[in-house]
Design a protein around this nucleic acid. Structure first.
Lengths: 224, 224
DNA sequence: ATTCCAATTCTTGTATACAAGATAGTTGAC
DNA sequence: GTCAACTATCTTGTATACAAGAATTGGAAT
């Protein structure tokens, strides 16, 4: 974070939000952040401005910045859009992938095979990220890649939540296999459908999870 | 622009970029902007930070902010993504539109009919925007709506360029008719396809236009 | 004349100062 | 005892000051 302080702060705070260090709804005190990072308020504010432009924090006039709290329905909507974008990436990847993309995709899938077999959800989480990024890359559309990466990143905390769901990892892995098959065989529509479904399911699961948690909370906090 | 100076500056500068007042590649001098808007550099910088986060401006360390120059290929990619997002919006609109959405869509389409018949490209340009926004709204996905509006806005200057192309307006209008028909009849896939095509064509036309301009430039600047 | 280097000037990046609005705590009245 | 209002404190928003890195201009040497 040496050179370009603002960018560094932006990344740090964004990461803090995405990893739930800064919880949704939490207030981001400028002076506190400034002191914590050993800088003045100016670069902190500039970083917060950037984050507010992205939609990660909300700046209420004269009342400071807070981490946005998307709400279950909005998160579902974000998964919907993500599904569409990934479907598009898959479709383009099927038509445009190079030998290098093929190798990349297969390598990422192999990693997923390993971590899936080992039932190592933490590792699978990272390998899964790499897999999806391989798909984006193979689309050869730099703008699409950027959009996908940005949204993927924003949905991180909610995706992570899901691997806890029973059998989600093995199901996910099987879906990956179909995606790889479709892309490498050049079947654009199949790639699109499989990827769209793969992501859309996550939105559904997320909704289920929320419903479950809400129900648990209603039936007494003993489980919470 | 009285209350919330930064937001006001952000809008002003963004608008300046989107309307080509600030040309792509142009340097945005902080002090100049500050003087122009009668404020200090601080809020100007914060506005520029926001614009850089959106991708409208690039801030090169210690070398100031410049308006980003997407380049033909990137603009084409942006149209590709826009096509997909609008297709998605159309698909959702077909399934979710309310009576109010129906009325809105028909009203916007009626406006387009008028300006199209009058061959008034300037008015059609605005009516067209309203039409597309009516589609977004009918999707009832707030996140998607935001994404669509943001990208739509960014593509403004390049869309505007196109209405100059012979017969583009009347073709566009005919496509609108098919889109309205598909959405109101609840045919999600038709709506998606028609909208996707409607936008994708713009990317194609844009490419053609660039190619034409490049060719003209090569054959001597007489045509200017 | 052209090119390279140095010095000056300009611009950015960060810190700090100051003003104004928000929050909280305390006091007073009912 | 509770509610309201006032005051004190804290935080944000903007301006300004200052340091350091670019750009530019002038000069010298080839």
């Amino acid at each position: 974070m040496a050179e370009n302080i603002v960018q560094g702060l932006r990344d740090e705070i964004e990461n803090g939000i995405v990893t739930n260090q800064f919880a949704p709804g939490e207030r981001l005190d400028e002076m506190q952040l400034a002191k914590h990072f050993g800088v003045s308020r100016t670069p902190v504010r500039e970083a917060l401005m950037q984050l507010s432009a992205i939609g990660l924090v909300e700046i209420r006039p004269r009342r400071g910045a807070v981490v946005v709290e998307p709400g279950p329905h909005r998160i579902y909507e974000m998964f919907e859009v993500m599904a569409e974008l990934e479907g598009m990436a898959g479709s383009l990847a099927a038509r445009r992938h190079t030998d290098e993309d093929r190798a990349n995709l297969l390598a990422a899938h192999a990693q997923c095979t390993q971590s899936s077999n080992a039932e190592d959800t933490d590792t699978y989480y990272y390998d899964n990220e790499r897999f999806h990024q391989a798909v984006y890359t193979a689309s050869h559309s730099s703008f699409l890649i950027e959009q996908c990466l940005a949204l993927h990143r924003r949905l991180r905390p909610y995706r992570r939540l899901q691997l806890r769901v029973r059998n989600r990892m093995i199901t996910s892995f099987n879906e990956h296999a179909a995606i790889v098959e479709a892309i490498l065989s050049g079947d654009a529509e199949a790639a699109r459908t499989h990827l769209r479904q793969h992501i859309a399911v996550q939105g559904d699961r997320f909704s289920d999870l929320i419903a479950t948690l809400a129900a648990q909370r209603k039936n007494g906090q003993a489980t919470g």
